[in-house]
Design a protein around this nucleic acid. Structure first.
Lengths: 155, 155
DNA sequence: CCGCTTGCGCATGTTTCTTGCGCGGCGATT
DNA sequence: AATCGCCGCGCAAGAAACATGCGCAAGCGG
């Protein structure tokens, strides 16, 4: 629970870039013995610095050709509407991320689908599920994914 | 390079949720021998289905309290401006994702910073780096992260 | 100045991974 | 309809990676 030193930061940066490295490989990066790398990594994990380790799949390879970011503004801000919205988001596999916003819109959704038809279908279902919106504006990136960078987060 | 069967999909879904499972654990999930799990996983990897395996760190634990989504519209769409913008994004560690957009704005940035000061500083630097914008609208989520779901992607 | 604590690297036992092998099912060719 | 060849499966042994106990050295407080 203490402060992180330079070795910890190097470890975190390393596993954030590549999470399946062996202790020996980590050892060469952070300049620490393999044993110590393992120990510190375990401590970082139990202390909650590492949320989890996941595989990033290739969207195109799986037929995911459209990644859309959609701003959603709810007409009513009562509990009922919010609950319906949350429920829909929770159940929809196409919605990969859901962020609460301040400003013009209430939520920002990140949606991954195969084609425009699926996207339209999703939006349609969302509208009917919640029962109409004051504003629904979609910013669709038509195969126009420039890049998705995941840079090391340093404290 | 062939089609994926139900075992492959189960494997992908499993490692997408938890990427550091042992072969024995995977075996129980997909109902296949550990050896075969390993072999199929290797094939999926060499065939490009698995982009990479990364560790997801806890932002708050690292002092990242603000996750902002910012829409950026470039004033000029010439090569020079675009190159300056790309260069800045590439160098800025705070910018975690950068999506090209169609519609009102040109880019959607996902920014992770410690506090509002850092965010303001980043925006300031971005503006000076590219040399002014036609429109720069920021949607800041003030500790208002509702949830970040990563659901299994099924083909 | 001494003893305690903490973090380090080494070595060993254990788990996990990899790879060669034989078996069985399924489609194609005749 | 029978056989041949191919592909995917599980098993087992060798290899690699991991976990843990130990002694040592540095930093700190008494």
């Amino acid at each position: 629970m203490e402060e992180l030193d330079v070795f910890d930061l190097r470890l975190l940066a390393a596993i954030q870039a590549k999470g399946d490295m062996t202790q020996a490989e980590l050892s060469e990066i952070v300049h620490l013995s393999p044993t110590q790398c393992a120990r510190r990594l375990q401590r970082l994990r139990t202390d909650g610095y590492v949320r989890d380790i996941v595989a990033i799949l290739d969207p195109e390879r799986l037929g995911i050709n459209i990644i859309a970011h959609t701003l959603v503004g709810l007409r009513n801000h009562d509990d009922e509407t919010g609950k319906a919205f949350r429920g829909f988001i929770e159940a929809a596999d196409e919605v990969v991320e859901c962020w609460s916003q301040t400003g013009d819109a209430d939520y920002l959704l990140k949606i991954m689908v195969k084609d425009l038809g699926e996207l339209a279908s999703l939006i349609e279902r969302l509208i009917t599920a919640v029962g109409g919106f004051a504003s629904l504006r979609s910013f669709v990136a038509l195969k126009a994914i420039k890049r998705t960078t995941t840079v090391p987060i340093r404290a």
